[in-house]
């Protein structure tokens, strides 16, 4: 992989991260009812958005792998699933940090929270099934199947938990969205969205590169063993 491009991407990611920090912490106005707590929004939302992007990439790369059987697609799906899982974990944590002062509780079985949690479990399973068989190509196939089935399931899971909560008589905890934001908040959000998307792409390149090298190493080992025999 091209080193220079990696460094350039890292530099751009760093700069946009600093800009996002400035925009989220200083430039954006303090929200009237929630106070500074609301600023976690500029981390939480981009993370969530990129987690979904990562799982979409897993889905597409999984289809690509079953279709073309190239290690390229498999490494892409593997790398993206790991980053998506880390981002989802951070989404759950930042969400809890926000919910405690605002809702007065760390967790609520709201539709979005529940969907994120179920997603987290699906992609934990995705990574586990990959490592659970000795033959790596078989593990890659299994993971691809979970990457496809799991992603197809996401809208149905979301629909079911939305109905589960909204049809429920007692609790409608959160009305998502809320009122329209002032332009400065939207701008800050846009800035951090860009920063986190760059971070995702950068991490994906790194992880993808490492995975490709590992694959290459394995292939070299196998051929050297065959030659030795």
């Amino acid at each position: 992989m091209d080193r220079g491009r990696d460094y350039a991407l890292a530099a751009i990611t760093l700069v946009s991260m600093l800009a996002a920090l400035y925009a989220g912490l200083i430039y954006a106005p303090t929200e009237r009812s929630q106070g500074d707590v609301q600023r976690i929004f500029y981390v939480h939302v981009p993370l969530a958005w990129n987690a979904y992007l990562a799982f979409l990439v897993v889905f597409a790369a999984s289809i690509g792998y079953l279709w073309r059987r190239s290690a390229w697609f498999d490494a892409l799906a593997h790398a993206s699933a790991e980053i998506g899982l880390v981002f989802t974990t951070l989404v759950l944590i930042t969400g809890s940090l926000w919910a405690r002062p605002i809702w007065g509780t760390w967790w609520s079985w709201d539709a979005r929270l529940t969907t994120s949690l179920v997603l987290w479990f699906i992609y934990v399973g995705y990574l586990l099934v990959r490592g659970s068989v000795i033959d790596e190509r078989r593990g890659a196939r299994y993971a691809a199947v979970i990457g496809i089935i799991g992603f197809i399931d996401v809208p149905i899971i979301h629909q079911s938990v939305v109905w589960w909560r909204t049809l429920h008589p007692e609790s409608i905890v959160l009305a998502p969205g809320g009122p329209a934001m002032p332009a400065s908040m939207l701008l800050s959000l846009g800035c951090s969205l860009l920063a986190f998307t760059l971070l995702y792409v950068y991490l994906l390149r790194l992880r993808f590169g490492a995975e490709s090298l590992r694959h290459e190493l394995r292939t070299l080992r196998r051929t050297s063993i065959v030659e030795a025999v």
Partner: peptide
Amino acid sequence: ANARSREVLLPLLLLPLQVP
């Protein structure tokens, strides 16, 4: 069926997909 620790892996993979 071919995996290690399949007894745990089956519900671990299946139940999240079964939420709906």
